[in-house]
Nucleic acid binder design. Structure first.
Lengths: 331, 331
DNA sequence: AGCATGAATGTGAGCGCTAACATCTAGAGC
DNA sequence: GCTCTAGATGTTAGCGCTCACATTCATGCT
């Protein structure tokens, strides 16, 4: 930096001012400094900046190490939103959401001087871990609908609304017996989707069957599909994600159960390729791009100490060939 | 740090030594310092460390912003490998692989003082962009099989070998007319898979039909599948990835073409759920975990100035129900 | 002319840490 | 008892930057 200052014939402080867009620098001086920067190929050392400003222009993101659709899409969207806002992203993945691992990750981010952190925490354990960390930097939790407290903020897609839309679609087609294949119950998303399914059925005055426990895997969907086909088949199944739905479709195909003629299937996520499942899957699309942007907006306001808006993102139903009216509409 | 030193009754330098595992510190002193650290909840400021050591314990990863299976899996694997090795990861995604964007990303990493960088560059543009950046830090390119040059290293999965295995499997079953639905030709992976298919057919003394241009999408696979079903159907199709294969399966199902009885289909990637496509897809599995580890090992040796081993990872064929011997084995 | 005013620039200190060197201490060897 | 040595510790400087303050300079006012 002093080299630049010398070449431009100014003090190091003026160079600093130019680089930080300080107002009171004469245009001529600014130009001279910029030329010197260019000529010398000078690049500011961000470690030194961070040391003195206590700001790194970086945010930390903690997410699960699994390649699940939701977390991954969220991560990518956050990175994009951050970069659009001139921030950079550090990532730590955790194997399990135990408090120690999360705390280690967040502590690391603090050491690094990140301006804020995001935790993509769709699971209870993750949330607990974050809550028990006494946050000295702003932290946004993606996936929960908590109210802001301390330095914690929450941003989420409204899974409940998504599930309601999906179930309503089936009710609207005339279905009455709508089964639900859930995600793992320690996932908030899974519970919200379950709740949406249940409430929607209750509002419609329908009996609510016992939900079928699932994880997020196609394998589980397949097993359940076989069992359903061999036993009492509902007229529609709402699966908690597309993988489960894919497994159902496979099982039904194998047993000669036709979709949607014999049974309708709805998924959740609108993963790539779900439009070419056999048959193309009716599913619920979440706007991850919007989620990422919202996330960053909230983080920004938290960093600047302002109040945060706790808006949620509402997902959208995509109707495709896997759903239709039941063949013999029940009275 | 001076607080810790005061509490432990030593100098700040001794504290530094303890924290850096310097050998010549008496066990008693070390314990006292550690206690003080614990009592005060002291955490070392990494910006200050980076400033003086010129090492941040961080690596940068540049990847595409798309949620494609390969790049994502690679990213996650690298993060895991890095963390296991005590390194942290900064991520920048690029929208397009233009030289300017890549250079910006790498420059940023340099400013940040990363110890090295990884570019997940399966596309020509990406490679060009990296090559034209005069690397002053070690950079590992994932996806190319370049020889090391300067500070550049390369690590890759052997796409060619994977394709050969897949095609060999079909030849072995008795197939003769094996079509290939390619990926985008500006992807190295796509070209390598194409090359493997072609060479394998040639070695077997079979005629090599014109490859069918594709991208990575199920939609494209679907279109091609319809065209094939309506025209001249080969006895087997090798699709450059699972999404394309999924589209093919959909098209064939729609046209009443049975898989594998009428046509065999092979994919590439072994994405989650490919075991529950209808029918379950024969595909090629890449060991991303291993790729990530190799990647970090190479980066490490590059950082320490040692020579790098340019080993590649060999993918593995997974045979499932989508392939079988052709019904009327051609002479 | 003389002085307040504010914009443009320079000066010094210090962020928290580590590297290099200086110093001290205890035991070995004669 | 004395030096020698090596291990354990302390001292000083400086990484590259920004902040707070000091200084300079042109401008407009009485």
């Amino acid at each position: 930096m002093s080299d630049v200052a010398a070449l431009a014939g100014v003090s190091h402080q003026t160079v600093s001012r130019v680089l930080n867009d300080h107002p009171s620098v004469r245009p001529g001086t600014r130009a001279r400094v910029l030329d010197a920067v260019e000529a010398l190929g000078y690049r500011r050392n961000s470690a030194a900046r961070t040391l003195v400003t206590r700001r790194s222009g970086t945010i930390g993101v903690v997410t699960s190490g699994s390649a699940l659709f939701g977390p991954i899409s969220t991560l990518l969207a956050i990175e994009r939103a951050a970069r659009d806002g001139g921030l950079f992203v550090s990532v730590v993945t955790v194997r399990q959401w135990d408090a120690a691992e999360v705390r280690t990750a967040l502590d690391h981010f603090m050491d690094q001087g990140v301006d804020g952190a995001v935790v993509i925490a769709n699971q209870d354990d993750a949330l607990d871990a974050v809550r028990t960390w006494d946050a000295r930097i702003p932290v946004v939790v993606v996936g929960s609908q908590d109210v802001p407290s301390g330095r914690l903020r929450a941003v989420a897609v409204d899974q409940y609304a998504g599930a309601c839309t999906a179930v309503w679609h089936l009710l609207d087609l005339g279905h009455r017996s709508i089964a639900h294949l859930t995600g793992p119950m320690d996932w908030i998303d899974a519970r919200e989707r379950l709740r949406g399914w249940r409430d929607e059925l209750e509002w419609a005055g329908r009996a609510v069957p016992a939900p079928i426990d699932g994880d997020w895997t196609a394998e589980r969907g397949f097993r359940v599909g076989l069992a359903l086909a061999d036993g009492e088949l509902p007229t529609a199944v709402f699966a908690a994600n597309d993988q489960l739905a894919l497994g159902l479709l496979h099982a039904f195909a194998q047993r000669g159960v036709r979709v949607p003629q014999d049974v309708s299937v709805v998924g959740f996520d609108a993963v790539d390729g779900s439009d070419h499942f056999v048959p193309p899957l009716t599913t619920v699309h979440q706007d991850f791009e919007g989620l990422g942007q919202r996330c960053l907006a909230v983080l920004r306001t938290a960093i600047d100490g302002e109040a945060a808006s706790a808006e949620t993102i509402v997902p959208r139903l995509i109707v495709r060939a896997s759903t239709a009216a039941p063949r013999t509409p029940e009275a």
